[in-house]
Amino acid sequence: MTMAWGRSAAVGVGAGAAGVVAMTLVEKLEQRITGRPDSYVPARTLERLLGLAHARGRRAWLHNLAMHASQGAMLGALRGVMAGAGLRGPWASLMFFAVRLTNDQTFENASGVGAPPWTWPRDELVVDLAHKAVYAFATGVVADALAVRWGPGPGQVHAEEFPGRRRHIGPPPRA
């Protein structure tokens, strides 16, 4: 069975955009409840990575939006490929959650804007993890719902050939 890589990635970009919308809605709700102000870490990271001047006001908001939305959509391509390959459901979304966190932390720490999460105040860490989980699982729900229309992915086909947990099962022969 061959996977349609381009189709899977394109679906993932859309799923990632949906995940960004879900994360943003949850974030705005959380901010209304907690009174926490907007974070401009995405804007500052983008500015440092691209060598842009430190922006304020509407321009900083636009940089924030650009980084937030582009990261979410582009990472969504990976989740779409995962779904196309047959990595679907909560386990796949949990794996993708780790990818999202790793992506953010790599850019934020490499640019000098962020610090390792284990050095953060616990309340900030919990909020960030919760928002990224919303993104990862919302992206997964959309990617999986679209991928299921194509039938099982190659990984699922392989798993169906040898159900249950077994040792020493190699790849199936090529068709």
Rank of each mutant, 00 (worst) to 15 (best):
Q31A: 06
R32S: 08
G35Q: 11
R36P: 04
D38S: 14
D38K: 14
S39L: 09
Y40I: 08
Y40Q: 01
A43C: 04
E47K: 14
R48F: 05
R48K: 15
L52S: 08
A53H: 09
A55E: 09
G57D: 09
R59D: 10
R59I: 11
W61L: 14
L65I: 06
M67G: 02
M67S: 04
H68S: 01
Q71K: 07
G72T: 08
A73Y: 02
M74D: 08
G76Y: 02
L78W: 14
R79V: 11
G80A: 06
G80L: 02
M82E: 03
M82G: 06
R88N: 01
P90T: 00
L94E: 07
L94V: 05
M95N: 01
F96M: 00
F96P: 00
F97G: 02
V99Y: 03
T102L: 11
T102A: 12
N103D: 11
N103F: 10
D104V: 01
Q105M: 12
Q105R: 11
F107M: 12
F107W: 14
A110C: 04
S111D: 05
V113Q: 10
G114C: 03
A115M: 06
T119D: 03
T119M: 14
R122P: 07
V126S: 12
V127C: 03
D128G: 06
D128F: 03
L129H: 02
L129G: 13
A130C: 08
K132A: 12
V134A: 08
V134Q: 05
A136W: 02
F137R: 07
A138I: 00
G140E: 02
G140F: 06
V141W: 04
V142G: 09
A143T: 01
A143L: 03
A145L: 05
L146N: 06
R149G: 11
W150A: 09
G151D: 12
P154G: 13
G155D: 09
H158P: 12
G164P: 07
R166N: 12
R166D: 06
R167G: 15
H168M: 08
